[in-house]
């Protein structure tokens, strides 16, 4: 068990999040096969690959929405396989969703209040509201705190989802396509914000993203998946030059055309 919040803030020698030989198959389809990775303390990792490569499946395994057929997952060195989803959040694993899943009929402020771990069972007091408003302020949402979450524009909803995950004071944050549906200026803003989040909240971040500009600009390390297999890993510079990655994204050059 991961007992104290403080334990997550110290580099303990363990990677923040680690998976070994992670595999899952649905019927006959091997959605993910033998995927291993280590996300370092306060590192920003990227998980990329073409559509259907198994990226979101990997996230769903990490948050125990699916059960892996093989392999194990460690959060700060603790095995988390088989624990219910809601325990993982309390142990410091926050996530966002590819298709936004906000509590849309609750206000922006309530969306953040509900995930605060230290607020008592019955009451949300003044202090908690202040903390929540500070967090919203960081995401430029404080002036819309009393609005219904569902009425926010798309980009703001994405930011709120990140804020909600951060309200739980996580050590690891999983972002599933945070820039999906954003315009270029919003995306570059987001890139800055992701780095700021890492520094200010001292979290390790693993993100899935199709926007290569964002991925290459933000991530310290990348893993590339294709058809459930890992085909490459390395720093963004290495990945850009990797022939297997280029092939997966652009297709193989036909010999006859040469």
């Amino acid at each position: 068990m991961i007992s104290s919040q403080a334990a997550r803030r110290e580099p303990s020698g363990h990677p923040a999040l680690e998976a070994q030989n992670l595999s899952v198959s649905f019927g006959g389809l091997n959605a993910l096969q033998g995927f291993s990775f280590q996300l370092g303390y306060q590192q920003i990792g990227g998980l990329i690959g073409p559509n259907g490569a198994g990226k979101t499946t990997c996230f769903n395994l990490l948050t125990n929405l699916y059960q892996p057929t093989e392999g194990n997952i460690k959060l700060f060195g603790h095995e988390i396989k088989g624990a219910p989803s809601y325990h993982l959040f309390r142990w410091g694993l926050g996530r966002t969703f590819q298709n936004i899943r906000l509590f849309h009929r609750m206000t922006v402020l309530e969306n953040v209040l509900v995930t605060q771990p230290n607020s008592s069972f019955f009451r949300t007091n003044h202090q908690h509201r202040k903390e929540a408003l500070d967090l919203l302020d960081f995401f430029h949402l404080a002036d819309q705190a009393e609005k219904k979450a569902g009425s926010l524009p798309y980009g703001a909803q994405r930011r709120l989802e990140i804020a909600r995950a951060l309200a739980g004071n996580p050590g690891v944050l999983l972002l599933d396509e945070p820039a999906a549906g954003m315009n270029p200026s919003e995306t570059s803003q987001l890139a800055e914000q992701i780095k700021e989040i890492r520094n200010r909240f001292q979290v390790s971040i693993l993100l899935i993203e199709h926007d290569m500009h964002l991925v290459m600009g933000v991530c310290d390390y990348l893993w590339v998946l294709n058809f459930g297999h890992q085909i490459a890993q390395g720093t963004p510079m290495e990945i850009q030059r990797n022939p297997a990655v280029i092939e997966a994204y652009l297709g193989r050059k036909e010999r006859s055309e040469c």
Partner: peptide, 14 residues
């Protein structure tokens, strides 16, 4: 109310 709005997200939010 969080469960009402989105049970999957609620579970993932602890």
């Amino acid at each position: 109310r969080a469960i009402r709005d989105n049970a999957i997200a609620a579970e993932a939010c602890g």
